[in-house]
Design a protein around this nucleic acid. Structure first.
Length: 988
DNA sequence: TTGCTCTGCTTACC
DNA sequence: ACTGGTAAGCAGAGCGC
């Protein structure tokens, strides 16, 4: 137990003030007891944690107690349930069975007759049904805008609003007569000569308009070419874009999907609140009259009063996305279990939907807790599992068709449905399974869309409600990395709920298909409980984050949760272009005008040169202060006015306004679009929401909310530079990326120079930081002031190490914080997740000893101990009583699919292939293979197939040696000296 | 077979 | 549809001896 606790604690430190998670952890204990719901759930987990107790009463289970080698805990493993003789089988009580329900639902409700339209999407049909029923919303007081999409049958955009007064989803169809279009720089008179265009069936009409062309910094006349449908603009096959291209003419803004275009033109902000009056939508202004919001508005106005007019104007326009309170909504989580055959390790294919669905659970914010279970032969009824909540119900079904039909009834009812991996599994599976079971499509609430791109992952939406697949959201690299600070290592429900909620899934040894009803129902319900809880914990932090991200990105919820940072940022900038009447440039326009490439990258094959890493001064250092530039790249982008239109701008008088350390100049007339958008996000976060998030004068709930905003902003601030530097970003501009990093290099190099000038030794630094040897307060403030003055950047004190061990390796060090004594390990092999546990254990042992070192005398003492430990452990490798098989396990992720390895076949791939052959287990891209290094054969064996005798002792000794060498190096201990006793004596 | 270099692959840091 | 570059370290592959 001790070991586990420690690792948790380290994590906390790591994340301090870096993630939402840190906030979660610290606030959890205070909060308990405050909220009724939270408490019951926590109690449940308490009970859950004691699994041993839980199963002592269960006579059918054979319990095996194993000493866990990693944490020294007693882990209980369950053996398969014993096979029962038929006489033991207890029937399910009749009153627990589903009793039938004839009430019509879905499109069957209301006796509406709809004509058939071929190739119509299921959602389009539903919208026709609503139209005929007169249920398209015309009046709505307060609706949270969740989704915007395009309906092919009506050829119009439509919106899904969550009615805050009734908790229902209301669908509204565009009443503004918005039409699909693209732009051309040709005048109408020229375009009229294009017979192909004029004669094209999808062509509608021309309109002369004006746009600001940022690249030339001129307002230009353009022609808006309207098409009949979005497909006529830039779909596949013949369309206006292609007709223009065929005539050597170019189309602008033709590749933007219609519903996004609609959002841009109408300046809709998903996640904000709208009213509808006689079919017309209007944004509901947040109540400025309230004292609190008045105060905040005033504070924010003051904050930006000295900034550029671009930033002031932008902030004016978008303050309400942060200030409008986020309503909590009614929502339901669900999860299904299917009957996977014995020894079948493959994930069932949702499109085939071959296996029967045996259990479905529902948990909702309105208190619903329910499991539908299919009656199957050979399974025994018993009273509910001990931890099964008293307020949850179980309903048994004799037929799978009835079970699924009743599930659909529930799905139509809830406005928001939360799943974990519902896109690729649950919803997808149910949709196809329903077809197989011949359940009418009119009852089926699910809309399966083929995803875009080569991978073409499925996207499952609801015809009426809104589906949020949390897997998608948590899997998002920016969310896991920036918002949650890497708190969870894999994007499994188990890992995420463990990390964020401190709760785990129900652990099971038996296969799902052989679980008794009581186990199955609890297992199934637990998943839904966790899934819903993930959106509810910490005052609905995740839900708030989702809505906030919709507001910032201006993306409909269904799209926001499924796209990555690059699409988010792209959308923000497209929206902003349209808002200000700027023409969205074509990718090629930028790259032809602004070629760049003045310096090669350090690593071959990379697009441009990146950051500078200072060579460390090896050895032991005491009292090392780390100073770093606060969000270096975003600051540079703002302060140096970097944007695709400002860098290498066309103005003659800007040409001598050279950017430091680059051959490029930047604009002196206007602030660039990248610069003011990123600048605004950065400023409002650093100067306002971040301080507010830890302002003790505020209530915890308020701080919580500010923290969520602050984290959401961080996602964009940290992600923006990476996106700007990506060739795939449509506004990519190489000189912008190069200038950002080049100015960064300049800044850190100048800082080293300056430090040395004022007599401070720089020991190390990476990208945006300098490690200073025992600087005085005065020296530090001197540096800070100098940086603000000379570089326009904030250089701040970040942390102090009482002890720092550097080797000659970059990105590798061990330091101990001065105040908290927290051990900060960077880069060392022992920290990597592919390092065997036994090495990590030895390593942490060494660190325990180093923890107390504050001077050289203590250090010599520690040295002796360390040598003993290392020698001792080297001997232990391979001894049967020393380490377990799991201790030797190496975890390596597959970066590609198994078949993608054509050049070399690494160990983990060989192990995976062997396991696949032996058991049929398929490994997907991104999955982690756990294997052991073995003597002979493959050199590697999946842990499932290996035993302790197989391990390659020599290899493991070698691994331990090299892992420890990294730290021993810095401590001035050579490995040979540890091995030889004679030399050891000489050493001391 | 051994030693060496180069490259592929994975994971870390910022 | 897809955020960036820099660095370390292991292991496979190829090659000359």
């Amino acid at each position: 137990m001790a070991g586990k606790k420690k690792s948790k604690k380290k994590k906390e430190e790591d994340l301090k003030q870096k993630s939402l998670f840190s906030y979660v952890e610290s606030s959890k204990s205070e909060k308990m007891g405050e909220e009724e719901e939270e408490r019951t759930l926590d109690e449940e987990t308490e009970e859950l944690q004691d699994i041993s107790e839980e199963f002592e009463e269960d006579a059918e289970m054979e319990v095996e107690v194993v000493q866990d080698q990693i944490y020294g805990e007693d882990i209980i493993k369950f053996k398969k349930a014993k096979v029962k003789s038929p006489s033991e089988i207890i029937p399910i009580p009749q009153d627990l069975f589903f009793k039938g329900n004839d009430k019509p639902f879905g499109l069957k409700e209301g006796n509406i007759k709809l004509e058939k339209i071929s190739r119509e999407s299921v959602t389009s049909k539903y919208i026709r049904y609503l139209i005929q029923k007169g249920e398209i919303v015309q009046n709505l007081e307060r609706g949270l805008l969740l989704d915007v999409d395009y309906d092919g049958t009506q050829n119009k955009a439509y919106c899904k609003f969550y009615d805050l007064d009734t908790g229902e989803v209301k669908i509204w169809i565009d009443t503004t007569n918005h039409e699909p279009y693209c732009l051309s720089k040709e005048p109408i008179s020229e375009l009229k000569k294009n017979k192909e265009l004029i004669g094209y069936d999808g062509f509608q009409r021309f309109e002369e308009i004006k746009r600001m062309d940022l690249l030339s910094d001129k307002e230009i006349k353009m022609t808006k070419i309207y098409g009949k449908t979005p497909i006529n603009i830039g779909g596949s096959g013949t369309n206006i874009k292609n007709i223009l291209a065929g005539n050597d003419k170019k189309a602008w803004e033709a590749d933007i999907r219609y519903h996004l275009n609609y959002i841009f033109d109408r300046q809709l902000i998903p996640g904000l609140i709208y009213s509808i009056e006689n079919g017309t939508i209007k944004k509901v202004k947040f109540k400025e009259s309230e004292d609190e919001s008045k105060k905040i508005t005033q504070e924010l106005h003051n904050l930006f009063k000295d900034e550029s007019i671009e930033i002031q104007e932008f902030s004016e326009k978008f303050l309400d996305i942060f200030l409008t309170p986020i309503p909590d909504v009614k929502r339901m989580a669900m999860d299904i279990e299917v009957n996977i055959g014995e020894h079948d390790y493959r994930v069932p294919d949702p499109r085939q939907a071959k296996q029967e669905i045996i259990s479905i659970s529902f948990v909702a914010t309105d208190g619903l807790k329910r499991v539908y279970i299919l009656e199957r032969e050979g399974f025994t009824y018993s009273k509910p599992h001990k931890n099964f909540p008293a307020d949850a119900e179980v309903v048994f079904y004799k037929s799978e068709k009835a079970l699924l039909t009743e599930t659909f009834r529930i799905l139509w009812k809830y406005p928001i449905v939360i799943t974990f991996n519902g896109d690729n599994f649950d919803l997808n599976y149910m949709f196809h399974r329903a077809d197989k079971l011949k359940i009418s499509r009119d009852l089926n609430p699910i809309h399966v869309k083929r995803g875009f791109g080569i991978l073409s992952k499925a996207e499952c939406d609801l015809r009426k409600g809104v589906h949020i697949d949390l897997f998608n959201f948590f899997f998002n690299r920016s969310i896991s990395g920036y918002a949650f600070g890497g708190a969870y290592e894999s994007s499994s429900l188990n890992a995420i709920s463990d990390a964020l909620l401190g709760k785990e899934k129900y652990q099971h040894e038996e296969e799902i298909h052989e679980m008794e009803y009581n186990i199955l129902s609890w297992y199934n319900l637990k998943d839904s409980l966790l899934t819903l809880e993930l959106t509810k914990f910490n005052s609905s932090l995740v839900w708030n984050l989702i809505i906030l991200l919709c507001r910032i990105t201006k993306m409909p919820i269904h799209e926001m949760v499924r796209r990555q940072i690059s699409t988010w940022i792209q959308n923000i900038f497209y929206f902003e272009h349209r808002r200000r009447g700027f023409l969205i440039p074509r990718r090629a326009e930028i790259s032809e005008l602004k070629k760049g490439g003045f310096k090669k990258s350090v690593i071959e094959g990379k697009g441009f040169q990146g950051a500078y890493v200072i060579s460390p001064v090896p050895g032991i250092h005491y009292d090392v202060v780390v100073m770093d530039f606060a969000s270096l790249y975003p600051s540079i982008i703002k302060e140096y006015n970097l944007s695709y239109e400002t860098v290498l701008c066309p103005h003659e008088d800007c040409k001598d306004n050279l950017l430091r350390n680059t051959p490029y100049h930047t604009c002196t007339h206007k602030m660039g679009i990248f610069a003011y958008v990123v600048g605004f996000f950065r400023d409002i976060r650093v100067k306002y929401f971040k301080p507010k998030s830890s302002d003790k004068a505020l209530s915890e709930k308020q701080r919580n909310y500010y923290n969520t905003i602050q984290q959401a902003l961080k996602v964009f601030i940290n992600g923006s530079y990476g996106v700007f530097g990506s060739q795939n970003f449509p506004l990519f501009c190489l000189p912008v990326a190069e200038s950002t990093t080049s100015i960064g290099q300049y800044s850190i190099k100048q800082t080293i120079k300056k430090s040395e000038e004022i007599g401070v030794k720089v020991l190390y630094g990476d990208t945006d930081s300098v490690f200073l040897l025992n600087p005085s307060k005065d020296q530090m403030s001197k540096l800070s002031h100098w940086s603000k003055q000379e570089l326009d950047l904030d250089l701040e004190e970040e942390k102090t190490y009482q002890f720092l061990a550097l080797s000659e390796r970059k990105k590798n060090y061990v330091g101990i914080y001065k105040d908290s004594k927290y051990v900060d390990i960077k880069g060392l092999v022992a920290k990597k997740k592919n390092t065997p546990d036994f090495i990590k254990k030895v390593f942490s042992h060494l660190l325990e000893i180093l923890k107390n070192v504050t001077n050289n005398e203590e250090f010599s003492k520690a040295k002796k101990e360390i040598i003993e430990i290392v020698r001792d452990n080297l001997k232990k490798i391979g001894k049967s009583d020393a380490f377990s098989l799991e201790d030797y396990a190496i975890n390596i992720a597959l970066q590609k699919s198994l078949s993608g390895y054509d050049k070399v076949i690494p160990q983990h791939v060989r192990a995976a292939l062997e396991l696949k052959k032996a058991t049929g287990k398929e490994f997907q891209k991104g999955e982690t293979v756990t294997f052991i290094k073995t003597k002979g054969g493959n050199g590697a064996k999946a842990i499932e197939l290996a035993s302790l005798q197989d391990i390659d002792i020599k290899k493991y000794k070698e691994l331990l040696r090299s892992a420890l060498e990294q730290i021993l190096d810095a401590l001035g201990i050579s490995f040979d000296e540890i091995k030889g006793i004679k030399k050891m004596d000489a050493f001391f």
